[in-house]
């Protein structure tokens, strides 16, 4: 479903993503872990068309990444920091993106209900808590019902309750057949969540397999415990 070939992005010679290739099958829930600067966010930003790769190719259902207008309907991207029009209401934010995607109003109502945002429909985003903002951010990213959802550090800065809520959402999306890739720098958190785990270290994939295999390996000790 997703085919990544020799994807490369280098920042000032040392950091970034060095030639990386892998495939993702439909319905996988992949956790991409690594330290800060390992290339996790770079990978997701390239997949979401936020950053352009230096070289390499990405195909999703046979569509090349460069075909942005087609690709945006395949991928939903949830950024680490909610990038919302915070001086406007929750509903305005949804409406704007619904118009650009040519989505019917009923879908907005559906999302607002699904994410328990009914009471905040007319509240300015700037007046919401961090957790609620993240809910709006996720809701907006899946407005067009994309088959692939990318989450960049979705639990960063969230408390325990909110983190649990986000993981519950990931499970629900996965159960509904979505393909999910998400990044985290805390692998212990996703032990029982991901179906596949990829470890990025200094821009290269150093592990790709079952989470249990990773935790049994020496790699986790080397990267996180020593």
């Amino acid at each position: 479903m997703i085919e990544i070939q020799n994807l490369t992005k280098v920042y000032k010679g040392t950091r970034g993503l060095f030639p990386t290739s892998f495939k993702v099958e439909k319905g996988e829930l992949i956790a991409i872990v690594g330290h800060n600067g390992a290339g996790k966010s770079t990978l997701l930003k390239i997949l979401s068309n936020t950053h352009l790769p230096d070289s390499g190719s990405v195909l999703i259902d046979g569509i090349d990444l460069s075909e942005r207008l087609k690709m945006v309907r395949k991928i939903g991207f949830v950024s680490e920091t909610p990038n919302l029009y915070d001086f406007f209401s929750v509903e305005y934010n949804f409406k704007l993106f619904a118009k650009l995607f040519d989505i019917k109003k009923e879908r907005i109502d559906e999302i607002i209900k699904e994410f328990n945002l009914e009471n905040y429909r007319h509240t300015k985003v700037q007046n919401l808590s961090k957790g609620l903002k993240q809910r709006v951010n996720i809701g907006r990213s899946i407005l067009s019902d994309p088959p692939v959802i990318l989450f960049d550090e979705p639990t960063s800065g969230l408390d325990f309750e909110m983190t649990k809520e986000v993981f519950k959402l990931l499970r629900e999306f996965h159960a509904s057949g979505k393909t999910i890739l998400f990044t985290t720098h805390r692998p212990e958190e996703i032990k029982n969540l991901a179906t596949r785990l990829m470890v990025l270290h200094k821009g290269k994939v150093v592990f790709d397999g079952k989470p249990s295999a990773y935790f049994e390996s020496h790699l986790h000790n080397e990267l996180y415990l020593q």
Partner: peptide, 14 residues
Amino acid sequence: EKKLLVSLLQTPMR
């Protein structure tokens, strides 16, 4: 700065 343009570029907007 607020990454609003980045989010708009994730829509079918040209």
